[in-house]
Amino acid sequence: MIAFWILAVIMLGSAIWCISASKPVYSVVALLLHFAALAAMYLTLNAEFLAVIQLIVYSGAILILFLFVIALLSSGVASFSVGPNRLPRIAIPAIVLIALALGFFTYAMGHAGAVVPAAQAGSPLGPVGTADVFGSVNDFGKALFTSYLLPFEITALLLMVAVIGVILLAGDHAPYVATRKHAAEVRREMREAILREGRQ
């Protein structure tokens, strides 16, 4: 429980830092802290596989991707050009809303009924890391390819849609043709240049 509170404070703090940082790089560092704390929280929940995935995929791959983008965009290291500060105008309604929501959630969680343990019935908590135990790689893989096969397959389609969509939007008007023509042109120019060199 103590670990939960420490991690929760770290996560909330880093999340606030992430959205309020003046430079994008700081935001990424704050996000890294957030992801690390999240991974630690997975560990406290005995989901060590998720924790490792969280570290590898999010902290390892996605954050590096963010850093690449920031490095490639020259404005990445500069401060955000924020507009006029709108916070004072919305401060009071925002505080009221947040207080209401927090109060409501606290009340609701306090009065939450008993959780019906349907899913966990067949998965006893045993020594961490062994097979057939909640959160283990074995258990995870089995669930992924049997009970959650359909969602898993939909995710594949989802990723493909994202890739095709990005190509469609980011490519110029004629993505394939123009590129092909361009490459051919470049090759021809190079050949001609080499021929010229040889003649001289």
Binding site: M109, G110, A112, G113, V115, A118, A119
Partner: peptide, 25 residues
């Protein structure tokens, strides 16, 4: 999911959940 312990619609219809605040929120 927190209320019913399952993502299935079928398990949400559990009458034991009618008083669970998690279901309402």
């Amino acid at each position: 999911f927190g209320a019913s312990g399952s993502v299935a619609f079928a398990d949400l219809a559990n009458p034991a959940l009618a008083s669970s605040a998690l279901l309402w929120v």
